[in-house]
Amino acid sequence: MADLLELAVVIPTFNEKANVATLVAKLDQALVGRNWEAIFVDDDSPDGTADAAREIGRLDKRIRVIQRIGRRGLSSACIEGMCATAAPVVAVIDGDLQHDETLLPAMLDLLKGDGSAEGALDVVVGSRFVVGGCTGEWDSDRVAKSALATKLSRRVLKADLSDPMSGFFAIRTDVVRRLAPDLSAIGFKIMLDLLTASPTPLRFVELPYTFRCRTEGESKLDHVVAMEYLIALYDRMFGRFVPVRFAMFSAIGVLGVGIHMVVLTALFLGLGAGFVLGEIVATLAALTFNFFLNNALTYRDRRLKGWRQLADGWVSFAVICSVGAIANVGIAAFLYEMRDGAWAASALVGVLVGAVWNYALSSKFTWGRY
């Protein structure tokens, strides 16, 4: 019984090679006397993070590596890691050393119960905002952004959690397996995904810790990550009505109309170019804008890279959208004739059919081939 695996520590990584050995050493020190394993889930880091973890794993059987090829995203990485262990409890901790690994034994004890009434818990959250917790050396701008994100998350949460944005927590593995089919795997806040996916509120407790400063590597926080957070909130609030990827694709399409009109106005009215020439250039500009923005946001997890993939993807996207435009016009014209001049409704149906066509085929043939 003493050799039974108790805890799996899942560590999602991207370009964290410099921190791998230090984190393993810290886990070894913090979890003395516990039977644990660490699972590095690496998104094919170009700096060799997966290789660094494998080198340690050759000597230490507690260290495992999942190297994901062609897949990106912190939440989906965490899901893969959490479902890949036989341990009854799984913890998620960042690979940048900013979370306090010394909290892990207390998290494990609370979820195991150890003879106390706390055995009914589902989740133990490392919190920066309960009494005793601290955000460390965050500047006022980051504190304000975190406070806004926390406020927004309460719109979808089924629990009064002080730090719903925490990426440091432990959870019973059977709960993860039960919820896995309903997880969106969008963005970088997997705990928020877990809490909102559960049909009944998960029982939790928060433990305070002080958020550390990064000493090696670069922060992954950027504007796209912030956008992914908003996308994840949308998915939980409205995704069952309009799928989030289709909503993003359509929103970018609307922005593309704006780009089209700006370019056409500049060429036709501003520079005196012919209308047909202006239309051609404006169409190409809008199509190119839509392609690259969809590649960066809508299909970030399938993002095309390198000039060959991008060129091939742009051509296929252009062909698909051209056929979609023909379908749009054809269906709108047909309905206009059938409905005796109901032009607005006919046009809207045509736009919807064209949007669905473009989305369905580009998902398969532009971003679904690599």
Rank of each mutant, 00 (worst) to 15 (best):
R214W: 02
V254Q: 12
K220N: 10
D312H: 13
F211R: 07
L297H: 07
K220T: 11
V257P: 04
I252H: 06
G217C: 08
T288Q: 06
N290T: 09
V225N: 08
D222K: 10
V242W: 02
L221Q: 12
K305W: 02
T298S: 13
G306L: 05
A296R: 15
A273G: 02
L310P: 06
E218M: 09
F275R: 03
L207S: 04
R245C: 00
T215L: 10
V254M: 13
F238L: 13
V205H: 04
T298W: 03
M237K: 14
R240K: 10
P208R: 11
E228N: 10
T288P: 07
G253D: 11
L255C: 14
A226H: 08
Y299D: 03
R236E: 05
F211C: 06
G274S: 14
G278C: 03
C213R: 12
E206I: 06
L277V: 13
G306F: 09
G253N: 11
A286G: 14
C213G: 08
L230T: 07
V276S: 01
V225M: 14
R240M: 03
G306R: 02
L277P: 01
F275T: 00
F238T: 02
F246R: 03
E228K: 03
P243L: 04
R300G: 14
L284H: 08
A232Q: 14
F291Q: 01
L207A: 05
V263W: 00
F249R: 02
G239W: 04
F204H: 12
L297V: 15
F292G: 06
L271R: 13
V244H: 12
F268A: 14
R245D: 01
F241T: 10
W307E: 02
A282K: 01
V242G: 04
R214T: 11
T210R: 15
H223A: 15
L269I: 10
G313Y: 11
P208W: 05
T210C: 11
M248I: 12
N295R: 13
E216C: 06
G272E: 07
E206C: 01
V205W: 00
F291I: 08
L233P: 02
E216G: 03
V262D: 03
F204S: 10
D301I: 06
A273P: 01
L264C: 00
H260D: 15
S219W: 04
R302W: 09
C213L: 11
A311M: 11
T298G: 08
G274Y: 10
F291D: 04
L284P: 01
E279F: 05
A285P: 09
